[in-house]
Design a protein around this nucleic acid. Structure first.
Lengths: 203, 203
DNA sequence: GTCTATAGCTCGATAGAC
DNA sequence: GTCTATCGAGCTATAGAC
């Protein structure tokens, strides 16, 4: 493969990084093309060489946010299963992968979480399938507990999945990457969803 | 007390209800005074008789969202303690109160959750104290487990509080009040945070 | 590939009539 | 209490020079 065409993709990536950060901080309508262009080091009109519209920029930011996390968790789950790990250990690895990717790419993932609900219908549509795919990946992680002999119906799995993903995604709002320990957080969250708060502090 | 001055407060309330719904759906910058006014049945200029600025409207929406939930949980906790309930039962009642108020006033609470992170500094500041007060209320609920003999340090309490509140608040994004059962959801969430997913489905 | 210039629109806020 | 009218600013998108 060629090692060239660097300029166009470099600029594209820089624009997307800036856009993700600004969408996270100011919301969909609070971000203007002039502001994105300025921080990326070009003029507003020039953005239209790289993208066809503002909505194309936001669509790409949303999809990147989902894809990075999906790939990280999928790989962690596949590796854990290849090693013959228990359902419990696999879930612990999935939690670790989700939080690691989620907090590492926090501008993209936070932009996704924060602005998804306030997008125009047409833009939101293109991200719905990716979200649904990711939820199914998690359902498959939970359903392994049935294979391992636990008694869980589909409704319990869905509730637990919504509970855990909601809790993990909320960490974007308070986690401080300068101070925090992602691995430690993942261990605590996995313990909480599997065995609850009272499992540790025996009476 | 007088039973009059209805008109001014009626309009004010109608404007706030409309604003909350629109902020939830379109974000802080996506909502204009013309749109709020139109849905509330008046003209944009007239809003300035009731409020001094757009930021005063959004500030009031945010504070109402916190206050309604805080009061509901505070009352539930006080009553549970007055009845001499265990820490575990009190937490179950607190979860029920939080979810009930949260989902009943979902336009206000969702507006708060969704747009808080994308507000101008000056507006966000006025809501910070109310949020902090509410978090402390929950810490006091968790700390009762220590009184009841469980071994929990401050760090575990904080992690569990962030985990539970994150999970509960995320329910705004998927809960359907037409179909869903709030009491049932509260029972499942309380069970999950206290004893975990694997407590039910014994192997 | 990036620029300047601009069309057509909406924004928050204010002034003053009624 | 609510209205109309308007200011100055910012918005997305396009056209065309370089």
């Amino acid at each position: 493969m060629s090692t060239k065409e660097p300029k166009i993709n470099e600029t594209r990536k820089r624009v997307l990084d800036v856009a993700a950060r600004q969408f996270r901080a100011n919301g969909y309508s609070g971000v203007g093309l002039r502001g994105i262009a300025k921080e990326a080091g070009l003029k507003a009109g020039s953005l239209y060489y790289h993208f066809n519209s503002k909505d194309e920029i936001v669509t790409e930011v949303l999809n990147i946010g989902i894809r990075l996390v999906h790939e990280a968790v999928e790989e962690a789950v596949a590796q854990s299963r290849a090693e013959g790990s228990s359902a419990e250990l696999t879930l612990r690895e999935a939690v670790k992968a989700h939080l690691s990717a989620f907090l590492e790419w926090s501008d993209y993932t936070s932009a996704n979480i924060r602005i998804f609900g306030q997008l125009p219908e047409s833009v939101r549509m293109v991200n719905v399938q990716a979200r649904s795919d990711y939820e199914h990946l998690w359902d498959s992680v939970f359903e392994r507990f049935v294979t391992d002999g636990y008694v869980l119906d589909a409704k319990s799995v869905r509730t637990a999945r919504l509970f855990l993903l909601g809790a993990m995604n909320a960490s974007l709002e308070w986690f401080d990457p300068q101070q925090g320990n992602i691995e430690g957080l993942a261990d605590q969250y996995a313990q909480l969803i599997l065995h609850g708060l009272l499992s540790e502090g025996a009476k």
